[in-house]
């Protein structure tokens, strides 16, 4: 190898380095801001919340003490928290099956014929768009024991109304009703997407094979193919239900007598009204455990099997 070759080889290495650097710089510039923000607003807080739940930190306090699992011990011994957890699970247990079932029913019925299809879809979807907090205020008036539409309507058909938001036995189920009303349309459009992805040929094949009636077609074609979609809708509807907060915060503040206390409300009031950050962090961890378990279930179990094209 001659001296000239050596020199130009060195040039190439130098130029290569420059080019590598230029490419790395471009990639950095593109992902840098997002990465920084992910660290600050996602990963960092996630680590913090776990650590915080092991301390007695109170917002604004100068110092904090490591208290081990004391927060968790206090939490599980606390009647309010147990009530809150129980209420949340009840809420999820009622809202998920109802909103999934009704959403599926609405999707099937609406898609069964072209007549007024767009009209129905719009109406059923409307609550998904509407600002929940504004609608909560509207619901409060609809549910007004004396002048509310619901009781007036019930009276008109000879039934007695209820004090929907102030009766301890009823209030949680009232919120369940609002929850179903609000999320039904969302589940419906997910099912509709699932339905349109079923190839038309399959229905024709089923018909040729003797599954002529709507009922038979549903069981031979629609349901088996919609099964994975249903599981998926169940999981995301459960995740959404765990996040119930808005209407309860504005209408009952968890009352009366904790009858509508739910996890996020407990977390909110401990963390942002009493500023017991450590304890609120422990509550958050419980909430996170449920949501994460559902989300992981969906990711690992479902994403492998459900295909949306």
């Amino acid at each position: 190898m001659t001296v000239g070759n050596l020199a130009s080889a060195a040039d190439t290495v130098e130029a290569d380095r420059q080019r590598d650097w230029r490419e790395a710089l471009a990639a950095m510039a593109l992902v840098g801001p997002a990465t920084a923000l992910i660290v600050v607003f996602l990963i960092g807080p996630l680590v913090c919340i776990a650590l915080l739940s092991l301390t007695d930190y109170q917002l604004g306090a100068k110092a904090l003490r490591f208290v081990g699992l004391a927060n968790y011990a206090e939490m599980f011994g606390d009647r309010v928290f147990r009530r809150s957890l129980e209420n949340t699970l009840t809420y999820v247990g009622v809202v998920v099956p109802l909103s999934v079932f009704l959403g599926l029913g609405a999707a099937l019925l609406i898609e069964a014929s072209a007549s007024l299809r767009g009209f129905y879809r719009t109406i059923f979807f409307l609550p998904v768009m509407a600002t929940l907090i504004a609608m909560a205020v509207v619901w409060e008036f609809v549910l007004h024991p004396q002048f509310g539409m619901l009781n007036l309507a019930l009276n008109a058909i000879g039934m007695t109304g209820q004090d929907w938001l102030h009766d301890r036995k009823i209030v949680l189920f009232t919120f369940c009703g609002i929850g179903v009303w609000q999320s039904l349309g969302f589940n419906m459009v997910l099912f509709m997407a699932g339905l349109t992805s079923i190839p038309r040929d399959l229905y024709e094949a089923a018909e040729v094979d003797g599954a002529g009636q709507a009922w038979n077609r549903f069981w031979t074609v629609t349901w088996p193919l919609l099964g994975p979609v249903t599981l998926f809708v169940v999981v995301i509807s459960a995740i959404r239900s765990f996040q119930v907060f808005d209407a309860i915060q504005v209408l009952t503040k968890g009352g009366p007598n904790r009858a509508s206390e739910v996890l996020l409300y407990t977390m909110y009031s401990e963390g942002f009204e009493y500023f017991r950050s450590g304890y609120a962090a422990a509550v958050t961890m419980v909430f996170l455990a449920f949501v994460l378990a559902l989300a992981l279930f969906k990711t690992w179990f479902l994403d492998r099997r459900v295909h949306y094209g």
Partner: peptide, 16 residues
């Protein structure tokens, strides 16, 4: 990150 709802990170972000 897709699995984490905002509610879970609210307290630390607020403290920040």
């Amino acid at each position: 990150g897709l699995l984490i709802p905002l509610h879970a990170t609210a307290i630390p972000i607020y403290i920040l």
